[in-house]
């Protein structure tokens, strides 16, 4: 399902990064960085994630010079059970709130919903926000955080941070052009340490549908980014699009998980970054900046999410995936 938007613009963005992201190549682009440790001054990792999201919302309001009373809607989601990071961070906003979940594809899902509300004339503006935290996810999805078990090279590293974007119907320099809502995909993948292989088919499916519906090709974009496929998933996606749909992704294609860290010096991230905030940190810090300063004219952002829980994995169910796409254009 591809939707066109006529009257939706990006008013501002904010990014708050954790210590590993602050050491990465995009460090200069983040609004705030916590460099000391993963607690970020909070009492627990979960509360740290709430703080990261709260910070990003506060910074966004400050940067866009808008009062929180003027916000019509906040849409947010994260990885923790019952999306608690998002709900707790909303308490101080006092704004109408919709909680959403599509794992690491949450940021684009929020953008699509917000843009549809604005384009439909129901609201004037909307914040879409997301967060993730390396340790709170590790604790929920894998082993205790201090437990050291060797991981395969295909494993990805959940990014730590909070990121928010403000959309409205007031014209700005960046327009939301259109987007594709993805479908849930099953390729019989069972390895939670190879999310790239799980999510690449979802990215391929959504990209194919986007290009088909909008009658565009990869060459129409200055940059095409997937969310968190990692170095191996990236190659799988390229091969899959080529063999199934004869679509060739060239040099304009990259993956946010690969861009967020320096994979040579930060070897602890293995195949690259993941988590809902991974794509949001890259897109909102670097890509939006590029659209503002004229580096990019038109970009296609695809966030990929692995839909599963430890319970379903232990019950031998396949790991499902989804990908949502959105196109932004500088005007």
């Amino acid at each position: 399902m591809t939707i066109d938007f006529k009257n939706v613009y990006v008013q501002g963005v904010s990014t708050v990064a954790g210590p590993y992201e602050a050491k990465g190549p995009l460090r200069a682009n983040f609004d705030k960085k916590y460099t000391k440790d993963l607690y970020c001054g909070a009492a627990s990792f979960e509360q740290a994630e709430v703080k990261l999201l709260e910070d990003s919302l506060k910074i966004l309001l400050k940067k866009t010079k808008i009062d929180k009373k003027e916000i019509d809607l906040v849409i947010a989601g994260d990885l923790l059970n019952q999306i608690t990071s998002s709900t707790y961070a909303m308490l101080e906003m006092h704004s109408p709130f919709l909680g959403i979940y599509s794992a690491c594809a949450t940021s684009i899902e929020g953008l699509l919903i917000g843009a549809a509300f604005i384009d439909g004339g129901k609201i004037d503006n909307c914040i879409a926000a997301t967060s993730s935290h390396n340790m709170s996810s590790e604790k929920q999805f894998r082993n205790p955080t201090e437990y050291g078990s060797p991981k395969p090279k295909t494993a990805t590293f959940t990014a730590t941070g909070g990121a928010s974007i403000l959309l409205s119907n007031k014209p700005s320099r960046i327009r939301v052009v259109n987007g594709t809502i993805g479908t849930v995909i099953d390729y019989d993948q069972h390895d939670p340490f190879h999310m790239g292989a799980t999510m690449a088919p979802a990215a391929a499916d959504t990209l194919y549908k986007y290009f088909r519906d909008t009658k565009t090709t990869p060459n129409d974009f200055d940059i095409i980014l997937t969310g968190d496929l990692g170095i191996y998933g990236k190659e799988i996606l390229k091969d899959l699009l080529k063999s199934d749909h004869q679509i060739e992704l060239g040099d304009q294609y990259n993956d946010c998980g690969v861009m967020l860290y320096d994979l040579k010096t930060q070897q602890e991230v293995l195949a690259g970054g993941s988590g809902p905030v991974c794509s949001a940190l890259v897109n909102y810090s670097t890509i939006i900046k590029g659209l503002e300063d004229g580096t990019y004219k038109k970009v296609l952002l695809v966030a990929t999410g692995a839909l599963f829980s430890p319970t379903f994995v232990y019950q031998k169910q396949p790991i499902l995936s989804i990908a949502h796409a959105i196109c932004l254009e500088a005007i």
Binding site: P152, K153, T154, Y187, D188, H194, A197, P201, Y232, E235, I236, D239, L240, S243
Partner: peptide, 12 residues
């Protein structure tokens, strides 16, 4: 698809 995944699997 499994073969494609295997093709890009890094050597452990």
């Amino acid at each position: 698809y499994e073969q494609l995944v295997q093709k890009h699997n890094p050597k452990e």
